[in-house]
Amino acid sequence: MIQWLGVATLWQRELLRFYRDRARVIGAFVPPVVFWLLIGSGIGRSLRVPGTLTGMSYLQYFFPGTILLVALFTAIFSTISIIEDRREGFLQSVLVSPISRLSLVLGKILGSATLAFLQGAAFLVLAPAVHIHPGLAGFINALILLGIASLGLSALGFLIAWMLDSTQGFHSIMNLFLIPMWLLSGALFPAGGAASWLRFVMKFNPLYYAMNILQANLTASWMNPRAHWLAPGIDFLAICAFTLVLIMAAAWAAEKNS
């Protein structure tokens, strides 16, 4: 069912393309970093949510959220190409080749996730520059989380791109769904200080759980970011489940409608 040679081929192609298309490297990495610098420095220490942000600058608080935003942007930009690739590009020939749909899905998602992971990790190593010192274990945990989240976001991007037939459609989904999903992950503000209805909504957002883990590992020493109704294990389970379900959904969609 899975032809690994085909998976590896598609994975490698994704990396090669990305490497040769500098605009994409910059496009996915620089905007989140600029947001982080501007919003982080702009807000500085002027906002205080009692009991949540004590002792850290907003630049620091916003840091884990930016890692996730870099991964989100990268994953989206590399999966969005599916929309045109299917009708007027490389994917046409993959679809009539003997490789299974599952292999196609895995190759594409793994390629996109690798890029998201690498770009996210490239930002993560800047942590000490803003005096975030998570220690070795914290770094490793953050990387593991980043890997799993990158897979999930790539699968989500694949699923959306597969179901759409125009890139314009993708942009509306991005603004209506993906960016709010990131906003409500705790990237910009901690759930603890949010209105109770919003906190309730955030509980259904898989990125919220990813953010919990990132913050716990990177910035938790200053704060107590966890809402008390969540046990630590739940965060990990939630983001793993999200990733797994989306990969299966992407495979199902590709098999069903091709």
């Binding site: 192609r13 090669l16 393309r17 040769r20 298309d21 009708r87 007027e88 590009g89 490389f90 994917l91 046409q92 020939s93 009539v96």
Partner: peptide, 13 residues
């Protein structure tokens, strides 16, 4: 073997 009307080559390769 299929040759499509729209190019199916990867242009970056």
């Amino acid at each position: 073997g299929v040759v499509f009307q729209h190019p199916a080559l990867d242009k970056k390769l």
